[in-house]
Every structure is written in structure tokens, then in C-alpha cells.
Amino acid sequence: MATLISEIDCSQHTTREINQAIKRAAADGVPDVRLTNPAARHCLAVAVMSPTRIVFDGPVGWYCGGMCDGAEIVVNGNCGWSVGENLMSGSIAVHGNGGSSAGATVRGGRVFIEGDTGARTGIAMKGGTVVVGGSVGYMSGFMMQRGTMIVCGDAGDGIGDSMYEGTVYVGGTIHALGADCVEAELSGDDRALLESELGANDIDSGGYDWKKLVSGRKLWNFSKHEYDAWRAAL
């Protein structure tokens, strides 16, 4: 019978050993795996395909939770670049700051970062939800294709640049909209969605000046009559 592991001290293992232990625990049906001393190590809890709850007590490095499908990951600390990259389903909650490319190419599930994130947050999202409690950096939401990104703080230059579809909500200041990103009217459904999504993280959506950003759809098809728009985008 396989050993049921519920706690892993990262300082005693290689990254490969940690990830193999997490997957063994998940396969054995261990519902809750706690990891201590992650010390900002990269590529932790990658591609976990079961609904296991994985808690990191401390900061994680780059690519944490990437490609996961169903796991519930909690990071009590910061995370590095590309947290939750290509997440299929499940959730990742980071109780700290994030790096660049947080939630890149997310396809489903939910990524929550309590603090600020860096450039290109939610780049090329293809579904799912990315929620940032603080501010996001340059070119966040670039080439977004589906899904929802909620930013409680400020958005850096180029937010939503060249987005195809999907929706970005910004509660703070927008430094500059990206190419073909436009502001849309906020509906009652939008407010309900914000209240529900942020309420899940104990954030009161009522304290923000929400702006809804969507694609202007001028870049969907090339038109020589809109040369200036294309020149700006490229």
C-alpha cells in the first residue's frame, strides 16, 4: 500500500521529488497536501490532474501550478513569473505578490493573486478567471481570447492590447489602453459578477471605480481603410 503523505518539507527534496510526491499523494487520494520551506523554488505542483488541495507555506518560484487540471493550490507567500500558466481547471490562490505573466494562457479555472503582479498578466488567456487584488503591469491581457480578468488596482500601459474577446475589469487607474481595447458600459450583470468573484476572496467590490474593457474588434480582419489602427497595433 502506498504511503499517504500529507506534509512535505521541500528543503529535504529535489524539485522532481517534490512533484512526484505531490502526484503520488493525489493518486492515493490524500485530500490535503501541505508543503513547507518552498523557498521560492521554481516549477512546483506542475500538472497535477486531481482535485487535491495543495498548500505552500512560503513563497514559490516561477511556473507554480502550471498546466494543473482540478487541483486547489494555495500559496501563503509570493509567487514568481507565470503562476498557473495554462491552467485547465481548479484554482490557485497566492497570498502575496506575483511576477510577470501571471495566469498566462489560462484555459479554465481561477487564479487569484492578493497583491500586485508584473507585466503581461493574463497574456493570451483562453478562458477561466484571473483576479488580481493589487495592480497589474505593462501589456496585461495582451491577445486575450476568452475568459475574465479582474484587476482591483491600477493597470499599466497597454492593458488589453490586441485582445480578441474576453473581458477585463479594472477598479483603479488605467495608464493607457492597448491597441483595439475599448471601454464598454458596465451592466448589472457585470456588477453581480464582480461582487461574486471578489466576494470569494473577501474583497468588497463596492469600493472601486470599475471600468469594463473589451475588444474593439477592429483588428479581427485586416482593412486597408483602417491602416492607422494596424500601424499602431503592429
Binding site: 509570493n78 514568481g80 505578490n97 501589456m139 500601459d157
Partner: peptide, 23 residues
């Protein structure tokens, strides 16, 4: 460049790194 370097000299969770923005 990466938090893993910071954590070798400061393991306090009170120390919250932030990424430098564009420009």
C-alpha cells in the same frame, strides 16, 4: 532576478518582494 536568491539571505515572510515595472 528571482526571489529564490532573496530567500537565501532573508526568510522572513514580512519581506514582500515586488517586481520592478516596465521602464
Amino acid at each position: 532576478s528571482e526571489e529564490i536568491a532573496l530567500r537565501r539571505v532573508a526568510d522572513s515572510t514580512d519581506l514582500k518582494p515586488r517586481e520592478l515595472g516596465a521602464g
